[in-house]
Design a protein around this nucleic acid. Structure first.
Lengths: 242, 242
DNA sequence: ACAGCCGCAATTGTCTGACAAATGAAATCT
DNA sequence: AGATTTCATTTGTCAGACAATTGCGGCTGT
């Protein structure tokens, strides 16, 4: 029986949560220095290694950073989009690989989310986004490109497309969808896909984005989604027959 | 000068990364037991506390769970949608609060993503989703409801809407958008909003979802988005004048 | 007086050793 | 055979120590 929830969790977990709550609630502000490990140990009435474990938990979540030296210590970290991005990709990748998510479910989510960005990208993309998309398409057209590099270029293309919407919050939210699901999709479909067709669809998307044509971009992306799902179904069907 | 990147990072970080990579690459599979702390310490040539710090980092990311006792140890954790959900909300909340994201940017992202789900929800929603939406609308219509409870009900309504798409990957990806951004939006607009109007718009959405009308649901959600942005602009304008 | 250098103190990173707590399995007793 | 006890294993916590890093102040030489 675990009536006493306070004792059921490890001390280090409780301390980590206390500090995390202080950060979330704003009691501790960005770049503020936390008390030293020795002071925290005294404050919470535990030993220094216990405090350290708590701090390590927070560091793993990018909530704090530590620095050695005289004026060192633990500081509240400003979470950057970059870091949040990376965390989301890691989590999404593991989530998908560990829960044998249905391919069509993942694919549907990925294209639904990307289609939310495309109309904005058609209206706002900068020249740099378009140039990056064109460059990736050019890469993809080279027959000598390995499957891994084709996949990486595919991710880069869609990344540029999403970034073209000019909304960092959207780009962050899409990170998991694109960069975790796309490689999964490539892994399944690379045996059956036609690179020419994918490049042609990418071209259609880029043309519509360049022309500021939201509807055209949306329908081109939808066509790419349809093609991907068709490919996946064919692969699945073939595996079933074997 | 930090030419040697291997020594620049702390030992515990390197060990954590090594184990994490083993999990991501599939060398360690779900529910597999890791070697004991003493064995890991010997394997990596470090002391037990160092190994422990590495394990704590992984535990903080929900990659492993630990258990005391004879047959205890550290086990590779199956990340659940629930856990990933919670992590995403925490990260998104901190990201938004620490980077003074423009309100319109957050709002745009939130509605763009939700609009990606709504057509699917109109086609697939179960009776339970619809019932939950109706129940939350009924709650929101009660004048006695506090602002906090109205906000919570608002989140629950949109959550039910998103879940109605019947795609767990989508629901997970939307967690940050809905549950981190919505409270932020409520905090800004609650002084100026008309609950009646919001309830009416929620009703329009629920009606369209019930009638299997994707276009109607989309336009109703778009109207809610427009109203929210208008509210925010009014609030900002008023603050500027004062 | 000023610039550069050196050592010191503070702080985190790591190690050693130890004991407590939990927990499953084996041994023992009825 | 079943219930109970004991025990070995493993994580959780503690104490103390030393190494590595780094900013600061004082010292020294000119």
């Amino acid at each position: 029986m675990k009536t006493d929830l306070e004792t059921s969790r490890a001390l280090s977990v409780q301390i980590a949560e206390a500090i995390r709550d202080a950060i979330i609630s704003g009691t501790l502000i960005v770049d503020e220095r936390l008390p030293s490990e020795a002071e925290l140990a005294a404050k919470f009435g535990v030993s220094r290694p216990t405090v350290r474990e708590a701090l390590k938990r927070l560091a793993a979540q990018n909530l704090i950073r530590t620095q050695r030296g005289a004026s060192g210590g633990a500081f509240v970290n400003r979470i950057t989009f970059e870091q949040a991005h990376g965390q989301q990709i890691t989590t999404s990748t593991l989530l998908l690989s560990m829960n044998d998510v249905d391919f069509e479910t993942a694919c549907e989510a990925r294209f639904a989310l990307e289609r939310a960005c495309v109309p904005l990208a058609a209206l706002r993309r900068k020249a740099a986004h378009l140039a990056r998309m064109r460059a990736e398409i050019a890469r993809q057209a080279r027959p000598a490109l390995s499957d891994e590099d084709f996949c990486a270029s595919d991710v880069a293309f869609h990344r540029a497309l999403v970034d073209g919407a000019g909304n960092p919050v959207l780009s962050y939210q899409l990170a998991g969808a694109i960069e975790a699901i796309e490689p999964l999709m490539n892994m399944i479909t690379f045996t059956a896909r036609s690179r020419e067709r994918i490049v042609a669809l990418h071209d259609r998307i880029a043309d519509a984005i360049e022309g500021g044509n939201p509807e055209g971009a949306d329908s081109a992306l939808a066509a790419l989604g349809d093609y991907t799902i068709t490919l996946a179904r064919n692969v699945m069907e073939r595996r079933r027959r074997i």
